[in-house]
Design a protein around this nucleic acid. Structure first.
Length: 385
RNA sequence: UGCAGGGUGGCCAAGUGGAAAGGCAGCCGCCUGUUAAGCGGACGAGCGCGGGUUCGACUCCCGCCCCUGCAGCCA
């Protein structure tokens, strides 16, 4: 048996006999010609068998292989006879490792999402899912790199926690040996404690909201990155959000162009994510809404429709600051010149994606923080530790 | 939780009171360059579940279950 190689390395082995180890992705034939598309996780390659050249019995055996059969294919790498820049394998031998126990349910044609989700473990084998996994993995890597390279210390918050402070959505409650424990809704409180210790900290991991909600904007489980920086003011926070978004998006565009192409993602909106982002105040956002006939008034929060209207005014993400305190959590610092407003910001993404980042300057005066707790009618005792 | 749409062979999908289209996959066969290949053939469901109306129900009525989208909530 020839040296085992991965499909992504075939270019380095042209003219050489190699062995692939993978699964049968698709099969086609044309009389005495048989085309087996084999995938191995790094790519898909066409393997060709011509009956008159094939060893005794091999052609007949290969002709009826089922989709997703595990196999080893040995053959010579050569340029694709019809497609420029691609390679194919002239099959010399073929070894079936295992055959599927049932007909593979996912055919090359149309399926509904519901059906595919019922076969999630197999759906993962398809090209489109590979592309999604790779884009997501790149994004996670870009996020970690950004903070690691900018002086932040990764401080992972517990996922399983007695801390129920977020309290805004329903919590997933579990029993921890007789005591209630919750799946985390946010690592923010832990990250804040860490920032006071190390200056710049971030946590990045799964968070949970027990809403029975499954829209593109809300999930019961999602990943969230939460940086906390001591002494950072609102403008500095906006700078950070802007630099961070530009950095991670450009990295994904650069390194995952092929996958975005497979997903047929129009990248022009992503390419426009460049500094500077427009920065507007909440009051200006309200004016934009009213200009478009939306009946939002000062004091109203933005829903999905409102976020879409506001972001449509700009060709890149927009940073909205200075929301009314009444709309925001108690811990934001008040604007000294206009105490009714919070020193907070939301970053709204284009294309209807809405709020992708929320943040702001924290209250650093204990008396005001306690007053704010009271104003929000929150039980002070729960926050004393 | 509310509103809207939807459950028809393994998958996708027409039909909408009177004998369940079609396509794909799977199976058999033909084809020396296929790319969701093409061509031919055989096979395969009684229409989400339970009641009702009717000579007759996939189709109409009632109840229930499940799915999807949007809204709400929120990030």
């Amino acid at each position: 048996m020839a040296a085992p190689v991965y499909i992504e390395e075939l270019e380095q082995h042209v003219g050489v006999e190699v062995t692939l180890r993978g699964w049968l992705y698709a099969r086609r034939s044309s009389g005495k010609l048989l085309f087996l598309q084999v995938r191995d996780g790094t790519g898909i390659v066409q393997c060709v068998l011509f009956r008159p050249d094939a060893p005794e019995g091999l052609f007949a055996r290969a002709k009826h292989l089922a989709q997703e059969t595990s196999l080893r294919v040995t053959g010579v790498v050569r340029p694709h006879q019809r497609r420029e820049g691609e390679f194919e394998i002239q099959i010399r031998d073929l070894d079936v490792v295992a055959e599927p126990t049932a007909e593979y349910p996912i055919s090359p044609k149309e399926h509904g999402t519901d059906f595919l989700m019922d076969h999630r473990h197999l759906w993962l084998r398809s090209k489109r899912q590979h592309a999604i996994l790779r884009v997501r993995a790149e994004l996670v890597r870009a996020i970690r790199h950004y903070f690691d390279d900018h002086g932040f210390l990764l401080v992972d918050a517990p996922i399983f926690t007695p801390n129920a402070c977020e309290g805004t959505s329903t919590l997933f409650e579990t029993d921890f040996h007789g005591e209630p424990a919750y799946l985390t809704q946010s690592g923010q409180l832990y990250a804040e404690a860490a920032a006071a210790a190390v200056g710049k900290a971030y946590c990045f991991g799964p968070t949970f909201r027990a809403e029975k909600s499954k829209t593109r904007r809300h999930l019961a489980e999602f990943w969230m990155v939460e940086p906390e920086v001591a002494y950072l003011d609102l403008a500095g926070d906006a700078d950070l959000a802007e630099d961070f978004l530009v950095s991670i998006i450009s990295r994904v565009l650069e390194r995952r162009a092929a996958e975005l192409e497979i997903l047929e993602r129009d990248t022009s909106a992503l390419e426009r994510v460049q500094k500077p982002f427009p920065r507007i105040r909440y009051a200006e956002a309200i004016a934009i809404l009213q200009k478009h006939g939306n009946d939002s008034r000062h004091g109203d929060d933005f829903g999905g429709d409102e976020e879409t209207l506001i972001s449509a005014e700009f060709d890149r993400p927009v940073i909205v600051t200075h929301y009314p305190m009444s709309l925001k959590p108690f811990y934001f610092k008040r604007d000294p010149s206009e105490p009714g407003l919070a020193l907070n910001m939301d970053v709204l993404a284009p294309e209807g994606y809405g709020e992708v980042i929320g943040g702001g300057q924290r209250e650093d005066d204990l008396a005001r923080l306690e007053a704010s707790l009271e104003a929000h009618k929150l039980p002070k005792e729960q926050f004393e530790q």
